[in-house]
Simulated assay, not measured.
Amino acid sequence: MTYVVTEDCIACKHMDCVEVCPVDCFYEGENMLVINSDECIDCGVCEPECPIDAIKSDSESGLESWVELNRKYARLWPNIVEKGLPPANAKAMEGVPNKFRDLFSERPGEGS
């Protein structure tokens, strides 16, 4: 078991999870984060830190595409080890439907 970041993170990217991760397994895209499943130690401390419930256990059903997305972009995006600032409109983006289809960016973030 490991954890994955899901669609709710897109355009919200609060990054509270980054601050508590003991193994620095988060990677930053332009408008979301992903978890490297090979580095995640399944401690679960990140899950309750996410204010929008975007982090889930990969054992939950229906998350297969998010497991693959996290795996793919953790290889492409820079590692992030310090909490940055969320987008200015993060609060307004919470709960917006179809964020993957409409807003997902493959571009890397700045990393840290």
Rank of each mutant, 00 (worst) to 15 (best):
M15N: 01
M15S: 10
M15W: 04
D16I: 00
C17K: 14
V18A: 12
V18S: 12
V18I: 11
V18C: 11
V20Y: 08
V20T: 13
V20Q: 11
C21E: 15
V23I: 14
V23R: 11
V23T: 13
D24I: 00
D24K: 13
F26G: 06
F26M: 07
Y27N: 11
Y27G: 08
E28V: 04
E28P: 06
G29Y: 01
G29K: 10
G29R: 10
G29L: 06
G29W: 05
G29T: 08
E30G: 04
E30K: 13
N31G: 07
N31R: 01
M32D: 11
L33F: 04
V34F: 00
V34R: 08
V34S: 05
I35M: 01
N36A: 12
N36D: 15
N36E: 06
S37A: 11
D38R: 04
D38W: 08
D38G: 06
C40V: 09
C40M: 03
I41M: 15
I41G: 02
D42A: 13
D42R: 00
C43V: 04
G44I: 10
V45K: 05
C46A: 05
C46N: 10
C46T: 05
C46G: 09
E47Y: 06
E47H: 10
E47W: 01
P48E: 01
E49R: 07
E49S: 11
E49Q: 15
C50Q: 01
P51H: 07
P51D: 09
D53F: 03
I55D: 08
I55E: 00
K56L: 03
K56D: 05
K56H: 13
K56G: 00
S57P: 12
S57Q: 04
S57W: 05
S59D: 15
S59K: 01
E60W: 02
S61G: 12
G62F: 11
L63C: 04
E64V: 03
E64R: 01
E64K: 06
W66T: 09
V67P: 14
L69N: 01
L69T: 12
N70A: 01
N70V: 09
N70S: 14
R71Q: 15
Y73Q: 10
A74T: 13
A74W: 08
R75G: 07
R75C: 03
L76T: 05
L76S: 09
P78G: 03
N79D: 06
I80C: 07
I80F: 00
V81A: 02
E82K: 12
E82M: 09
E82S: 08
E82D: 09
K83Q: 15
G84C: 06
G84H: 02
G84M: 01
L85S: 14
P87K: 10
A88R: 14
A88C: 00
A88P: 06
A88G: 07
A88K: 14
A90F: 10
A90I: 01
A90M: 01
K91A: 13
K91Q: 13
M93W: 06
M93G: 03
M93C: 11
G95T: 06
G95K: 12
V96R: 10
V96I: 14
P97C: 09
P97E: 04
K99G: 02
K99E: 06
F100H: 03
F100M: 09
F100T: 05
R101M: 12
R101A: 14
R101E: 14
D102L: 05
L103N: 02
